[in-house]
Design a protein around this nucleic acid. Structure first.
Length: 741
DNA sequence: GAGGTCC
DNA sequence: TCATCTGCCGCAAGACCTC
DNA sequence: TGCGGCTGATGAG
């Protein structure tokens, strides 16, 4: 039931809080969608003819799959990035409401039986719709379908609406698309209704909670009380008090407690044991899944073969239709990966002093014909032949350029995936094509049975990420850190409060750290000040000494190095609190990868290049990747400014870390909690272990739910090395690393 | 835009 | 008299393609 | 499930 009469109430009292928008206007936006409501609608309407619905050969209903499949493609094609949120365990207070619904379904079943007996077609149709219930199996089918389509799925701890609202509040999605008005009561900052309405009968309407509160002149707590008084899923209101009266009373008395105290007990009967406080609690502090604050949703390439098998073989879908639909998803993903870069442009144009206008040299030109950023990270990682990059700086320039062209061609061919294109490719670039095939063959060889390799090779070095890898996310350090960053953006960079959470996350996603993104956008602030503000007041006291991990680390015979994006002060503090400060040979941190800026070097090169009679842009291009100044050309819509900061997950940072630590990537295991860092680590040739996940992610050789399980999962670390001598010799070669005091 | 079809 | 609330009923609720 | 339409009841002004 949502909130009784809230639509009308808002239309009458807060008309400016809602505005008509269009389906297309959400292009490029992450949208949280309540899955259950959608599935319910599909079951009611898709392919229904009386009691008959779409089914597979086994007679199981497939209407929900048909509906969800086409709707999701519709959203993706429009450039939206849906995140489907599934209901968890309903709160106890909702049981009464659920029982009511159950009873209604029972009644409908009886009417349906009677209608079937009498053969009245309209009645059969009507009552069969009323018996629809979304079962666990329906939900599981849909989750499977979405995952195969590469669309993120969230399993809510409790109410999906609450989870959606939290995703929106924390900036992980732009808006929540739902029909249920209590999404607003859960505090979703942007709430969209009728987004999915195919009939176009109702326009798409966007509500903003902040505007509602402003117009109604209520605090969020008062708005929640108003909704409870109107009547919600968790408890009835007071008989005789509807929307208008409730609004008047809340404005007048401020809270339900005061209203109950002041109103006439003759006129209004307060329900006995009225659980308004519990209901308030559900809205104010809903049970939501404790997710990684930095978790990034990803819309990945569909698992084509498995998806086809699921839809065509298991559920009787038409093969050609499915093939065509998968093509649409791929095309949408491709467009979206380009669009994502554009999404940062508004900040560039409106709120940021553009840097580097004075630099006339177009450093990106040599690779402009195929920008690697056009391709999804996965494709990029898998096809990027490691052997192309032995040590870029050591290669002579012409070879470098030639290899660069090969890389682009490899990426290009990896994207198109069309056999006929190979023929054209061979005709046009026979030599490159042969080389490419050779390299791809090598790559395939090196990618074979990664875990097998992990088991067979001996290791010399273990590279550890620190935050959320050496201690669990549940400490809340990460969350506190993010809040501090948001606070910094608000206070010192004067970024609009409504933009901060989203911008914080977008930049994190695009650049690896928000700081790197801010720098890339041209925000001029002092790195040390930023770190001091962000890390200076973290709740470090929550980190307790971890003797178990300490013993594990000390018993490992390999070199152990920290590789973190954080600054050294933070790393010192964390390791000290965990009692691990003497477990590592060194720390590769922010300062290691981003030493204080040295004038003369790069500028000189630019100057030299431009002032020469025949400027060799390649000379600058190769270095630009490493030194990365903020270059942004207004006329070029495909390029974002590069970050001045070298940090994970960039491949350059991985290669730099490998070089600084002086390790052989083939004999190094990289532990990290971030999917992107792992993918990047793999691309750099490292063995990779995703920490904090029970499932393998792209690029990971192994998954560890906790770093404490390392001995069970990787016993070979402790196996006797055959030539320890080699290790000892290598371990002296890390002088450049910031060694812990 | 109506009507048929998806499985 | 008017505003507000209640309760009941009926209706629609996807998306794509072809014509 | 949500909404509009309708009807009748109720209470404030």
């Amino acid at each position: 039931m949502g909130i009784k009469g809230l639509t009308k109430l808002l239309a009458a009292n807060a008309p400016n809080s809602m505005k008509e928008t269009t389906f297309e206007s959400y292009s490029g936006r992450e949208i949280a969608v309540d899955a259950s409501t959608s599935i319910y609608q599909f079951l009611i309407v898709v392919g229904r003819n009386g009691t008959q619905m779409l089914t597979n050969d086994a007679g199981q209903v497939t209407s929900h799959l048909q509906g969800l499949f086409s709707r999701t493609i519709r959203l993706l094609e429009a450039g939206m990035k849906p995140v489907y949120v599934f209901d968890g365990k309903p709160p106890d207070l909702k049981k009464q409401e659920l029982a009511k619904r159950h009873s209604k379904r029972m009644d409908a079943s009886e009417y349906l039986a009677a209608a079937i007996e009498s053969g009245v077609k309209e009645d059969i149709e009507k009552y069969s719709k009323r018996t629809v219930k979304v079962t666990r199996q329906h939900n599981e089918d849909c989750k499977k379908l979405l995952r195969l389509m590469g669309v993120p799925v969230v399993e809510a701890s409790s109410e999906a609406e609450a989870e959606c609202a939290t995703l929106c509040k924390t900036g992980k999605v732009y808006a929540v698309a739902s029909e249920d008005m209590d999404t607003l009561t859960f505090g979703a900052p942007i709430f969209v209704r009728h987004l999915m309405g195919s009939s176009r009968k109702f326009p798409v309407v966007q509500y903003e909670v902040a505007k509602i509160l402003k117009e109604l002149n209520l605090t969020m707590d008062q708005f929640i009380d108003l909704c409870i008084l109107c009547g919600c899923d968790y408890c009835d209101g007071i008989r005789g008090i509807g929307g208008q009266t409730a609004l008047k009373l809340v404005r007048q008395h401020g809270s339900i407690e005061n209203i109950v105290e002041k109103i006439s007990k003759v006129r209004y009967r307060i329900p006995e044991n009225w659980p308004f406080q519990e209901a308030r609690c559900i809205f104010k502090d809903p049970v939501v899944s404790v997710s990684d604050q930095n978790h990034v949703f990803e819309w990945i390439t569909p698992d084509e073969e498995v998806l086809k098998n699921f839809l065509v073989n298991e559920n009787g879908f038409n093969h050609d239709r499915v093939t065509k639909a998968i093509g649409k998803i791929k095309a949408a993903n491709y467009r979206s990966s380009n669009r994502r870069l554009h999404s940062l442009k508004p900040w560039l144009r409106t709120s940021v002093p553009l840097k580097s206008k004075e630099t006339k040299c177009q450093l990106g030109v040599p690779s402009a014909f195929l920008n690697p950023k056009m391709f999804s990270l996965q494709v990029y990682m898998h096809l990027r032949p490691k052997l192309l990059w032995p040590s870029v700086d050591e290669l002579v320039r012409p070879v470098n350029l030639f290899l660069g062209v090969c890389k682009e061609l490899a990426l290009f061919s990896s994207y198109i995936h069309v056999s006929s294109s190979w023929s054209i490719f061979f005709l046009l670039f026979p030599f490159q094509a042969l080389l490419l095939l050779y390299l791809m063959g090598l790559q395939a060889f090196f990618d074979m049975d990664a875990i097998g390799r992990l088991n067979k090779t001996k290791y010399e070095c273990l590279l550890f990420d620190m935050d959320d890898t050496l201690y669990p996310m549940s400490t809340g350090i990460n969350y506190a850190c993010r809040k501090n960053i948001e606070e910094y953006m608000l206070q010192f960079l004067e970024i609009d409060a409504s933009e901060v959470p989203r911008m914080c996350l977008e930049l994190y996603k695009e650049y690896g750290t928000t700081m790197a993104g801010l720098k890339a956008l041209g925000y001029g602030f002092d790195n040390d000040e930023f770190h001091a503000f962000v890390h200076g007041r973290l709740p470090y006291e929550r980190l307790k000494p971890d003797p178990v991990l300490r013993n594990l680390l000390l018993s490992m015979p390999q070199r152990k190095i920290i590789f973190t994006n954080a600054d050294k002060a933070h790393a010192d503090q964390v390791l000290s609190r965990l009692g691990l400060d003497d477990c590592f040979e060194g720390i590769i941190c922010f300062e290691t990868l981003n030493p204080p800026f040295e004038p003369n070097s790069y500028e000189d090169e630019v100057y030299k290049c431009l002032s020469s009679e025949e400027p060799d842009y390649n000379l600058l291009f190769s270095d630009s990747e490493r030194k990365a100044d903020a270059i942004y050309d207004e006329n070029d819509d495909s390029l974002l400014p590069k970050s001045q900061i070298l940090c994970k997950p960039s491949l350059e940072s991985m290669e730099a870390a490998i070089q600084i630590a002086n390790v052989d990537p083939k004999k190094t295991i990289f532990f990290d909690d971030s999917v992107r860092n792992i993918a990047s680590g793999k691309a750099a040739g490292l063995h990779t272990v995703i920490v904090g996940s029970s499932e393998l992610v792209p690029g990971a050789d192994l998954a560890l739910t906790s770093i404490h399980n390392i001995k069970e999962a990787l016993p070979e670390i402790w196996e006797e090395e055959e030539d320890q001598f080699e290790q000892v010799v290598q371990s002296t070669a890390v002088e450049t690393v910031d060694v812990l005091a």
